[in-house]
């Protein structure tokens, strides 16, 4: 199976590199910009923290945008969350369906390999891609912190990255399952789903009556401001996310191994 795994990685390493460099690079640029905007940020911090639901939506009620940690959580955190989630959708939405969409399934499945093994190998490639994406981004952000001679809050930092990885895996798992049902390229659906879930999280934070929307959005447990501000995450949400991931993978396996090849 390592050859199919290698083949998958080879097929999408350029996409991985492009997304990681763009998201990580943008994050690092934002961190570096902080030193030039430090005074303006300090002046704005109080007013940003007093904007009620809007402040809460971006976590500015828990962290001061005047500190690098607060600036990272509110600015870079948003870029990383959205960028990482969109990359998760891009890397998994077509990974199973592309064989039928590109008419390559007859070649692939004429080889002595079962559909089940193909499912797990492709999922392995998705996981590797997500892990590498987060490692590269962490590298960029770390370089930004080092350039400003700022220390990194290690415990919060790793918890945040772990939750970001779980967020990516959950969204990738959902898209992976959707890919098992589809015979065509449905990238738009995957990206739409990411934006919808992000919007659900945002609305749940801004509008008190819609607070329950946070239950369905995995962005709720991976919020940078909450994790970096309190050192904790919504454990229930994370557990639910892990459950959704397992269910999505099971669905993908059952559907893909049970369907006829077109």
């Amino acid at each position: 199976m390592r050859y199919i795994y290698g083949h998958e990685m080879k097929q999408y390493w350029k996409t991985l590199l492009l997304w990681a460099v763009c998201v990580g690079g943008m994050g690092m640029a934002c961190i570096l910009l902080y030193s030039t905007m430090q005074e303006e940020m300090a002046a704005m911090a109080d007013s940003f923290a007093a904007m009620g639901g809007f402040s809460a939506a971006f976590g500015m009620d828990q962290l001061s945008i005047a500190t690098l940690k607060g600036f990272f959580a509110t600015e870079v955190g948003t870029i990383h969350e959205l960028g990482g989630a969109m990359f998760a959708a891009v890397s998994s939405m077509n990974i199973l369906s592309k064989e039928e969409d590109g008419h390559t399934s007859e070649f692939l499945f004429s080889l002595p390999v079962s559909r089940g093994k193909v499912v797990w190998t492709k999922w392995g490639a998705v996981c590797t891609g997500l892990l590498l994406f987060h490692l590269i981004c962490m590298g960029f952000y770390g370089m930004g912190f080092l350039a400003l001679s700022e220390g990194i809050p290690v415990k919060e930092w790793f918890l945040y990255q772990a939750m970001q990885l779980l967020l990516g895996l959950e969204l990738a798992g959902i898209c992976f399952a959707a890919s098992a049902f589809s015979r065509q390229n449905r990238l738009g659906v995957g990206l739409g789903l990411v934006l919808l879930l992000y919007a659900c999280d945002l609305v749940s934070r801004v509008v008190p009556k819609m607070e329950k929307l946070s239950v369905i959005s995995p962005f709720a447990y991976a919020n940078a401001s909450e994790i970096l501000g309190t050192g904790k995450t919504a454990a229930g949400g994370a557990l639910l996310g892990a459950g959704v991931l397992v269910l999505a993978l099971w669905t993908a396996y059952v559907k893909y191994t049970g369907k006829d090849q077109t």
Binding site: H7, Q11, G102, H103, T104, E106, F107, S110, L111, P112, V113, S114
Partner: peptide
């Protein structure tokens, strides 16, 4: 025994499509 059997089969589909890149 699909995998075992396919190891001994050479199949050529009518479309002959591969990964373009």
């Amino acid at each position: 025994h699909r995998e075992e059997i396919l190891a001994q089969v050479g199949y050529m589909p009518s479309e002959a499509m591969f990964y373009p890149a």
